[in-house]
């Protein structure tokens, strides 16, 4: 079977779409209100869950408000309205445990069936007495339950769009691999002076540019609904747009010479330089300044809670699938170029 890798690529792409869309998210907290409280008051908040089943096991529900890493208060009553709505009441102590005037507290809800869910910065608690004491605050959070069935992590703001990790990120990983193959073919052309390798390099660069542009478009759609704008002038967005311009210049350069030998040679040298700039533009510069992308600037990497083992089982096959599919497209484009060259050669010798 000569075509096994194409079949594998298509299989992995279908797998990444079916598993990436089909596997549910873990239960999470979608919303909590009101978001302001004062010290010393009896505070009741309305928590809305996502994919939760609060009504199935109303007795083993537990909830906390957590301040920093060391302080928390447990809820003194939890009322279940329906499967996704809770009324959680807290007796907030008279003083805050830290010196701040206002602290933000995360809401944590735990149950055997749904596992634990965290809503960061759910309440801002204002210190009305302006005194600091840890009295009433203790870290009683223990015996947390994990959600048992196969699911992807629920992240606030990201929600279901966490699945875009299987479609947006593999485009960029696949683009890097395809541009690497393109640069290797350019190097082989410079060593052998065989036109075949130049056509291969150009075909792979075309597919790499397609993947990059699709990466920009899919990233913009994702950004609109999580960061708030299609283009936030984020350093990684800007740098990847520049990387695309660098590769568009490769095609302009390659097509601007009359003589094919000369255009192939200059194109190959430029292609190798273009590939060298890629890691700088996509990995080095975004690390130096602030970026909205995970793993850049002050942001933590896309790992831990964001990329658990269930997601890895879809994410890595998706990268291989997209890369193999891109390589397939590139071989078809190369074969078209090759046939064109042969027709021209035959016409020349006749």
């Amino acid at each position: 079977m000569k075509h096994w890798w194409k079949i594998l690529g298509i299989f992995l792409m279908i797998y990444s779409i079916v598993a990436g869309i089909g596997i549910p998210l873990k239960p999470g907290i979608y919303d909590a209100s009101p978001s302001k409280a004062n010290t010393g008051e009896q505070f009741t908040m309305n928590a809305v869950g996502y994919l939760t089943q609060f009504d199935k096991t109303p007795d083993d529900l537990r909830a906390w408000l957590k301040v920093g890493n060391d302080f928390a208060i447990a809820a003194n009553s939890i009322g279940v309205k329906n499967e996704s709505t809770l009324n959680v009441s807290f007796q907030i102590p008279n003083n805050l445990p830290t010196k701040d005037r206002v602290v933000d507290a995360s809401l944590i809800i735990d149950s055997k069936k749904n596992g634990y869910a965290i809503f960061p910065s759910a309440v801002f608690i204002t210190n009305t007495t302006q005194q600091t004491s840890p009295e009433g605050w203790n870290n009683s959070i223990a015996d947390m339950h994990e959600f048992k069935s196969m699911a992807f992590p629920y992240r606030n703001i990201l929600q279901e769009t966490i699945r875009n990790l299987f479609y947006h990120v593999p485009l960029w990983f696949g683009m890097m691999i395809i541009f690497l193959i393109s640069a290797i073919n350019s190097g082989r052309f410079l060593m052998t002076k065989n036109q075949k390798f130049d056509h291969k390099a150009s075909a792979y660069a075309s597919v790499g540019t397609l993947f990059g542009i699709l990466g920009l478009v899919t990233g913009a759609i994702w950004a609109k609904h999580t960061w708030g704008a299609y283009w936030s002038w984020d350093i990684k967005q800007n740098m990847s747009a520049i990387a695309m311009l660098v590769y568009l210049a490769y095609f302009v350069l390659r097509n601007s010479f009359e003589e094919s030998e000369q255009s192939a040679r200059i194109g190959a040298v430029y292609n190798i330089f273009a590939f060298v700039t890629l890691p700088m533009l996509l990995f080095v510069i975004p690390r130096l300044t602030d970026s909205l992308h995970p793993g850049n600037g002050g942001n933590p990497g896309f790992g831990g809670e964001d990329l658990d083992n269930n997601m890895r089982m879809v994410f890595y096959p998706a990268i291989i699938g997209f890369t193999l599919f891109g390589a397939w497209m590139a071989t078809i484009l190369y074969r078209i170029e090759d046939v064109k060259q042969r027709i021209e050669d035959r016409a020349f010798y006749e």
Partner: peptide
């Protein structure tokens, strides 16, 4: 786009990849 846990953002991304191909 923000309803149903923003699932339509994922659909939009998949459709734009398909259009690109």
């Amino acid at each position: 786009m923000r309803s149903n846990g923003k699932i339509y953002v994922v659909i939009g991304v998949l459709i734009s990849i398909f259009i690109g191909l």
